[in-house]
Design a protein around this nucleic acid. Sequence first.
DNA 1: TTGAAAGCGCTAACAC
DNA 2: GTGTTAGCGCTTTCAA
Lengths: 338, 338
Amino acid sequence: MAHKGRKAVTSFDVAERAGVSRSMVSRAFSNSPEISKESRDKVIAAAKELGYRVNYLARGLQTKQSDLVGIVVSALDTPYRSRQVKVTASECIKLGYRPILLTAETPGEVETLVAMLFNYNVAGMIITSAAPSSEIINEARSLSVPVVLINRDSSEAGADTVQTDLEQIGRLAFDMLSRSGGKRFAVIEPETPSYSVTGRAASFRDVCAAAGQPAQTFVAPSQSYDAGYDIGGAIGLSLADLDGIFCSTDLLALGVMDRLRHDWNARIPEDLEVVGFDDIEQAAWKSYDLTTIRQDADEQARLAVRVMSERITDPDREPSHVSQIVTPIFRNTTRRNQ
Amino acid sequence: MAHKGRKAVTSFDVAERAGVSRSMVSRAFSNSPEISKESRDKVIAAAKELGYRVNYLARGLQTKQSDLVGIVVSALDTPYRSRQVKVTASECIKLGYRPILLTAETPGEVETLVAMLFNYNVAGMIITSAAPSSEIINEARSLSVPVVLINRDSSEAGADTVQTDLEQIGRLAFDMLSRSGGKRFAVIEPETPSYSVTGRAASFRDVCAAAGQPAQTFVAPSQSYDAGYDIGGAIGLSLADLDGIFCSTDLLALGVMDRLRHDWNARIPEDLEVVGFDDIEQAAWKSYDLTTIRQDADEQARLAVRVMSERITDPDREPSHVSQIVTPIFRNTTRRNQ
DNA sequence: TTGAAAGCGCTAACAC
DNA sequence: GTGTTAGCGCTTTCAA
């Protein structure tokens, strides 16, 4: 663990130096009205000379407040996620919270780390990785620390959620792919189930089925570019039977396109139309120019922080489940773009 | 700020429930040897029943230790950076530290946030954004909180640093571009100076000059893909006068390539050889297949955390400045690849 | 306005 | 082994 060498200049030292009591020091730094201008000035001056900093942790102990919050994330080194976390963190900071960043790749890790967060008396937490067990959610509930889940299953009673509208996604993808008249569609989903990305694929499949055009499913080893490149081989084999494909992730789409062009000399969108999901920065890169469905990472993050913050100030209100709308972004991997 | 509704089950409650003293509770949770197995078991059982969690913040107040550390980062939504932060955070956690994530885009923000970190009694901090002022570094020194700078100017006495070897980079880029016999080189650097990326460009320029082949400089608006796409226009104009170009960032390189291919119908490497820097994941994508210079983000992060941790345990030792080696990655944007 | 005193949740001597 | 006491750095009654 951590040694801590702080030179221990405390409110006591400042008080002594300024010739006032410790209460006065406290008042000076919590802009209390119960202090005269002279006292405040004396205190501030003394504090500066001594290099004093209020210890917020000690303060929190006394006031029974905490401005620490937890952010639990997996795959932070991924374009969408990193954007999401960036704005989640900055929104937290803007609102006066201090985010502790916990990276967890497996459900087990999530479990351990989230549990640990309780020891730090966090005011709330935002989870954008595998969802923790209901056991943990319940503990959070009984400790009354708000937890908001991003794009995770909302069936866990007690947690607030922010998530994209799965049904809309399926309909939209189907619509975007259908505009040019194509009817033979496929969808790619990752092998390891993920509530949101597996859900998108399922939603698309449902819409296709309802339209009497059952979609073929390709299972990729993960959600990454490499996984897309990998499954692109199988897709190449089926090129003649397919009009369009919905990739549950932009990264997957990019990998697929590269494989198809490289090994199958396929032209996109002429030979196959492609629709991705996320609208990561790379989707707009000229080599891809991917038609996709945007989920707004910034908005998602802001919503999550807002929900958490509202729940912190009003712990007893009903859990809220906010649903986020998604937008079609037409670029050049579909034929009809309007 | 944050209300905190923790249901206040304290060591006192557990002690009462277990029929022992609070010291015993403390001992049970800090695996002290000074406790009998029976007592420990009783305590653990009582704690579980009550849903007790040790308050680490209160503990820290008493033990004068803190396992909180700060990570200050800019441009987290960028491939290299997100990877770097991911492993920095996970390394911290692995070592028992809890990273507070602070995102700061401007030097002013960095200043404010770093200062704020002192209020949380952090055991140390890792900065991978603009470097804070020497005033702050000095404050950190006097409070004896270690600060390690990644790829920032090391002239600030007192801070530890981890950075890539700038001289090696220039030589390497020159060498990689020279293998095919080309002699007319250029380099791209961002408008807004950055210690590391401006340094790379300067280093390359020096080596070129020393070889009697002064390099042309293109100034891009930033370090991003879009900036590369932008300056790619100017580079297209000079295509006939150039054999190779060193892009101080992979993102820049990718943007340049896309622009050159799209608007100038340029073939790479036939018409122009390109060498990037970083080796982000996207550099390996088939549409680019970029020859580049790898700086190992994982290693960099691990080094930074290690340096910080060593400095925490031994605050009085001399600041260490570790220099990181960089590796050539030959792919297909240069003609001779061995 | 100001200060004295109590106490947040915890651990660390110190005695038993 | 175990309990008692004091105290970490801070804020907050409560009197003055």
